[in-house]
Design a protein around this nucleic acid. Sequence first.
DNA 1: TATAATATGGTCAAGAAAAGTCAAAGTCAG
DNA 2: CTGACTTTGACTTTTCTTGACCATATTATA
Lengths: 155, 155
Amino acid sequence: MPNNISDIIEQYLKRILEESGLDMVEIQRSELAEQFHCVPSQINYVISTRFTIDHGYIVESKRGGGGYIRIRRVKLDREHLVLEVLRSLGDQINQATSEALLERLYRENWITRREAQMLQNMLRREVLAVDLPLRDQLRAKLLYGALQVIAAHRD
Amino acid sequence: MPNNISDIIEQYLKRILEESGLDMVEIQRSELAEQFHCVPSQINYVISTRFTIDHGYIVESKRGGGGYIRIRRVKLDREHLVLEVLRSLGDQINQATSEALLERLYRENWITRREAQMLQNMLRREVLAVDLPLRDQLRAKLLYGALQVIAAHRD
DNA sequence: TATAATATGGTCAAGAAAAGTCAAAGTCAG
DNA sequence: CTGACTTTGACTTTTCTTGACCATATTATA
């Protein structure tokens, strides 16, 4: 029951996504906006509210001549421990906690040894050289960003 | 899906580069421009945005009669990976540059596809949510941290 | 040989063609 | 009537295209 433009555009994009069989759509923002008689930024709204990584989509775009917005569907395994972790993470995490977490993910075979080392090295406080309330927030975001990719198994 | 001339020319050059087997292509600027119905300086634009050293290419050229533009693909030296990269990038790295580098590292088999995706996702400006002089510095540090582990893992 | 003409490629800045951001205003269910 | 969601549009940023002018190498000519 789509009763507003956002829902209609959402449905439209999902239908195209289905039909194209390839889990991918590429659109031009202004063109789509014209097609649905709305302002271009409405497209951004639809995308940012309905095609987020948490919904299982990855969006790339390019500006300038020949620009585009590309939406890809990725399969998120809802059973993933990783996702659980991801959600329970909170917006701050200290070094010790992140190390323990990575250790565990490695032990349980969610990430490779090298990935674990890489992440641990990147999340050290010497690397994240900012002061403390911010540092832990940054670490949380980075970890979240890394885990998103782990949780989204594609190709 | 190339939507603009620059992309088309980029693809063309990369294909020639592939096919010629020798990691080298030599063109004449005005000739190529004519072939793609664009102004000559467009070729310079394509080269300066897509065939930089960060992307793994070296470009030489000569003016005057019998002039040419030669593009060579170069590989990173296993011994000096981190140093090479560090020297060429400095202590600040913007998102576009880091993406070029990661793509190259993947292409040259230094990192897996998943590692590349993970790092790209972590280094996005939305994730590194701090203001700009600092953000690029942080990105450089993080990339350096990742590279240390890559370099250490010399199989 | 010195000089002029010709043949290339290089630089840069203006403008166009996208997409992104953000906050104010509108809508609607509870 | 309040809070969450939606719509709009002014302004920003990024990327691409074009063209006028510049620099350099080779070739023809005095």
